[in-house]
Amino acid sequence: MNRIDVLFNRLRSEGRRALMPFITAGDPDLPTTAALITELVARGAHMVEVGIPYSDPIADGPVIAESYHRALTKGIKLSHIFQTIRTLRAETATGTLTVAPLVTMVSYSIIHKQGVDRYLRDAVTAGIDGLIVPDLPVEESESLCRKATAFDLRLIQLITPTTPRTRAVQIARSTTGFVYYVSVAGITGERKSIPPELAENVAWLRTQTDLPICIGFGISSADHVKELAPVADGLIVGSAIVRRLADAENRHRTEIVKEIGDFVAELTNGLKT
């Protein structure tokens, strides 16, 4: 059974929520990426979203876009990323990382260039559990969803506050794993407050799907996590983590990993209060 499904089945039975940090693969380097994945799960993250660097990111703000640029200028390639994750899964054959899902945020251009079947096969053999493809319209997602399911991968799709409700229902019905609900219209980035209509929008979406609903974009503090925990099945934190990585790029890996781990531990505490 797919690790994403197992995770949310367990958390729902326990009345708990998931924390899903985002990191860019290869920023500042792949050994740090591997160390971070291990540390984040050890510090309470339930799932990790790994951004596949792309030269023309679709929905990402400047913090994540710049992290993609840093990784690409160092020559990071998809095969390197999958090998890093494959090695990490093999080296952690026991413990919490074994059961923690890993999800890639990836442009469809990369999947198409690699070849859909090859991408999915390489992803699943590396130990990936799902993919988020922000530039793939729902009208064109049926084939990818069907093939991903055949590989026991989940295709997670995004719904935004400006998505018409009829289209939101269509997206939810063509999604597997969980629904990624974008908290605000626009690009990724840290924000000071959460839109007041968010809870109402998510409550409506729950009447349309039985899938878990995870909220992302703009969540950047333990207070945000605490505020949204009653609303969501999972919370995704990206730019706040990637910014800390950028600020610490000239420091020793051990120090960087601990600092990010401390921040994620702080976020997970927001789930408990």
Rank of each mutant, 00 (worst) to 15 (best):
V50G: 00
D129S: 07
G75H: 14
I52L: 13
R89Y: 07
D129K: 09
E39R: 11
I159F: 02
D56C: 09
D122N: 10
S55Q: 05
Q114C: 13
Q157R: 15
T98E: 03
V41H: 00
L72S: 04
I64Q: 10
R121N: 11
R70W: 10
Y108L: 04
D117Q: 13
I85F: 11
T149L: 15
A126Y: 13
A123G: 05
L144S: 09
A71P: 03
E49L: 12
H46S: 12
L136P: 12
V48Q: 02
Q114K: 09
D56E: 10
E140D: 14
L136C: 06
I159Y: 00
I132R: 05
H46N: 14
S55K: 02
I37R: 00
D152L: 04
G44V: 01
V63G: 06
P57I: 01
G127W: 07
Y119G: 09
A123I: 08
V133Y: 06
E142F: 13
A71L: 11
V124H: 08
R118H: 09
V99M: 13
G44W: 13
L36D: 02
C145H: 09
E49Y: 09
L88G: 02
S79P: 04
K113D: 14
I159N: 04
L72K: 06
T73L: 12
K147A: 06
A42H: 11
I37C: 01
G95R: 01
G44R: 08
Q114V: 07
T104F: 15
V124G: 14
V41W: 00
S143L: 06
G61C: 12
E139S: 15
V50L: 13
S109W: 09
V106G: 10
I110H: 03
L155H: 06
V103R: 05
I37M: 03
L40S: 03
T96I: 05
D135Q: 06
I76C: 06
V63N: 03
A90H: 06
L88T: 07
R43N: 10
T84V: 07
D135N: 10
S79T: 10
V41Y: 02
R154K: 14
I64G: 02
K74Q: 04
K74L: 15
T104Q: 07
R70M: 03
H69D: 10
A123H: 02
L102F: 15
S109T: 11
S141C: 10
